[in-house]
């Protein structure tokens, strides 16, 4: 059954077209407070998705067996089609990113999980694993990795996901699916802002300045 969440979704601030913000539009504690408006069953789905996103934030250098077990476990427990699609999107991206990095390091194809593992193994010698038609970001990502621009490469991946989920969100107004996509995008903003040390420093200085006013520069 599709539940509507008019109150909850209307209570959430608008997410902009781009994720490169100084801070998240809503803080995590306040977001969690708003999510208490969810029905129990939907709350469970959100918890499953949150658990995946937390796991997904961990470094890419995990052992393959751990990734496989985690993925299999998720696919057994998650039944919501949109959450499954989000997980698959992220897992596929992880697999491709892992393949690009391994090939650059002179390694072998990743064991990994998801629909592209065998395809990548078969097309290991092809520059973009014959996936450029479906994933246009592989080439620019490879270029950035080759240049050693890790942060820009991360920005590219965030941008791809953020755009995809923003487009999907246009089809869901005030629905649970709309909320899932909101949280997925919020998580990208949160990841970006938490990585942005410079922005954090500026934010801190601005906060100090706002709090102390002209006294901020006394010492």
């Amino acid at each position: 059954m599709h539940r509507s969440y008019y109150t909850l979704i209307a209570s959430l601030p608008h997410l902009p077209l781009h994720f490169e913000l100084d801070r998240t539009p809503i803080t995590r504690p306040r977001l969690n407070e708003r999510l208490k408006l969810l029905e129990d069953a939907d709350r469970d789905v959100i918890d499953q998705m949150s658990a995946f996103l937390v796991w997904d934030r961990q470094p890419l250098d995990r052992n393959d067996q751990e990734v496989i077990e985690r993925y299999d476990n998720l696919m057994r427990t998650v039944s919501n089609p949109l959450v499954r699609a989000l997980i698959n999107t992220r897992i596929n991206m992880r697999t491709i990113v892992s393949a690009v990095r391994r090939r650059k390091a002179g390694g072998s194809p990743p064991v990994g999980v998801g629909q592209w593992v065998d395809h990548i193994r078969r097309n290991w010698e092809h520059p973009e694993f014959r996936l450029a038609g479906r994933y246009a970001w592989i080439r620019p990502f490879q270029n950035l990795i080759d240049e050693g621009a890790a942060r820009e490469a991360q920005r590219l991946l965030f941008s791809v996901n953020y755009r995809t989920w923003s487009r999907m969100a246009e089809h869901y107004a005030f629905s649970f699916e709309g909320l899932i996509l909101y949280l997925a995008r919020w998580e990208i903003i949160d990841r970006w802002t938490s990585q942005d040390a410079n922005a954090g420093q500026q934010r801190f200085e601005k906060l100090i300045s706002e709090t102390l006013g002209e006294h901020a520069n006394l010492y």
């Binding site: 008019y6 109150t7 979704i9 209307a10 209570s11 959430l12």
Partner: peptide, 13 residues
């Protein structure tokens, strides 16, 4: 009901 719920939510923000 739909619009009222949205209004209540918006008032939080």
């Amino acid at each position: 009901s739909r619009a009222g719920q949205a209004a209540c939510g918006a008032m939080l923000d």
